[in-house]
Amino acid sequence: MTEMILHEIAHARSGDKGNRLNVSVIAYRQEDYPLLVEQVTAERVRALFQGRGVGKVRRFELPLLKALNFVVDDALEGGVNGSLNLDGHGKSLSFLVLTLPIRRP
């Protein structure tokens, strides 16, 4: 069993629309995609944003692109037009998702 953070095996990008955030998580290697599907769950992503009072978290699987797409409602505490956060767009938050611990059997 190897422990690592998600950043070791995947890259990610954030985008905002109003108060809704999407984060894509993309495996560098096809053989790591099943680890993403198994361990990078909507529940774990939701827990990362818990302090922000997030709403629904949806996860979409894109096996041909070896990617997951997360859509997180109410993640931006008002979004770019209302947030008090320095990063009202949530552009940095892809790297928060990349801090998730991952175990490789």
Partner: peptide
């Protein structure tokens, strides 16, 4: 492929 994948999914919700 990696730069394209990130941009395809940028600000995209239901794929």
């Amino acid at each position: 492929e990696a730069t394209l994948t990130e941009q395809i999914l940028y600000k995209l919700h239901d794929p």
